[in-house]
């Protein structure tokens, strides 16, 4: 059976370059502007019973049907920081692709990051050894091999001309297969919402608008509607510190590599990239992250794998099983008819 997963180069099936995010969690200030800007643009219902979620300053919990940008807050002790540095050093020593600082720093890269003119040779690790508070804005990964897209039976999920993965609200029938198909737990079917709509009126002061797309799978569209008009996605536009960067995926990966090298040079061995490797289980992600600890600390899977990669084998096994069933029936008739 032919390979069913998409190759990275299949994605550029249009003249547009593939777009993506680079989320640099080392400069995230946890303000949640991305969450609000996203909800505001996409008119997502709020996602809360208005109770503390018992997780530091995080009260939206995780990505889901209504929250398409989610800021994680992790409080860590010195011991955990040391472990993170340790695991970062281990990564470096593995000899992974793209190790070490780029030979020469391309001056064009890294929007918002001005080349240092002062901190030339400071390689001592920053001193916050006793405690740290990690913040990280998570989002749909827009995988090269997107589990949700592959398993969608209706074609509601599709690969856009920008290489992103988007749900068509008017097509989805809410079967929920994509929810199970996502190795990152991103996509979710929208339930009835928490506040019952008073009226159908939208954008009217003093009126609650109806919740849209109930029963339909929902996730980050990377603001497809804005993208077709050459606008920046709402979250990236709002982000005060450019922790969320948006642009051509290739450029994002380059920026990410440069930034991680910079941090490692400064002694932050805990810095690492997530999703920048096209050979990983999902073929690389459209949304690349710079993390300061192991992915699971942020609620990300450590070794995600698109289920479609194993689908040919599963079909094969199912075929054998089906054949077995046919054979068993035949045997049954032969055995049962013998008397």
């Amino acid at each position: 059976m032919r390979q069913l997963t998409e190759a990275p180069d299949h994605i550029a099936h249009h003249e547009h370059p593939r777009k993506g995010f680079f989320t640099d969690t080392s400069i995230c200030i946890g303000c949640k502007a991305c969450e609000v800007a996203c909800k505001e643009w996409n008119r997502n219902p709020h996602d809360s019973a208005f109770e503390l979620l018992e997780s530091s300053y995080d009260n939206t919990g995780s990505l889901g049907a209504d929250t398409w940008r989610h800021v994680a807050f992790v409080e860590q002790s010195g011991q955990q920081i040391e472990q993170a540095r340790e695991s970062g050093r281990a990564l470096v020593s593995l000899g992974m692709p793209g190790i070490g600082p780029p030979a020469s720093r391309p001056s064009s890269a890294a929007p918002g990051i001005v080349p240092s003119d002062t901190a030339s040779s400071d390689t001592t690790p920053p001193d916050t050894p006793e405690f740290r508070w990690l913040m990280s804005s998570d989002v749909c990964k827009h995988c090269t091999n997107a589990g949700c897209l592959d398993v969608c039976p209706t074609g509601a999920l599709f690969r856009t001309e920008f290489g992103t993965v988007v749900v068509q609200d008017d097509v989805c029938n809410g079967c929920g297969t994509c929810v199970a198909g996502c190795p990152f737990g991103v996509i979710e079917r929208r339930s009835d919402g928490i506040v019952a709509p008073k009226t159908e009126r939208d954008f009217t002061p003093g009126e609650q608008a109806a919740t849209r797309n109930v029963g339909v799978a929902q996730k980050c569209t990377l603001c497809y509607d804005r993208m077709v008009d050459d606008q920046t996605p709402a979250c990236a536009q709002a982000c005060p510190t450019t922790s969320i960067k948006y642009g051509d995926r290739e450029e994002m990966v380059a920026t990410a590599r440069q930034r991680v090298a910079e941090l490692q040079t400064q002694g932050m061995s805990e810095a690492r990239l997530y999703g920048a490797n096209d050979f990983d289980g999902v073929g690389g992600t459209g949304s690349v992250f710079l993390l300061l600890d192991e992915p699971e600390v942020y609620g990300l899977p450590p070794d995600p794998r698109v289920p479609t990669a194993d689908l040919p084998q599963m079909f094969k096994r199912a075929g054998i099983a089906a054949a077995g069933m046919l054979a068993a029936t035949a045997v049954a008739f032969v055995a049962g008819g013998r008397r």
Binding site: I27, I29, C31, A33, G112, I113, V114, P115, S116, D117, T118, A119, S120, D122, P240, T241, T242
Partner: peptide
């Protein structure tokens, strides 16, 4: 937060 972008830039400069 938005004013903080200038601090972020200064920090990125070193």
């Amino acid at each position: 937060p938005v004013g903080y972008q200038w601090v972020t830039e200064a920090k990125a400069r070193g």
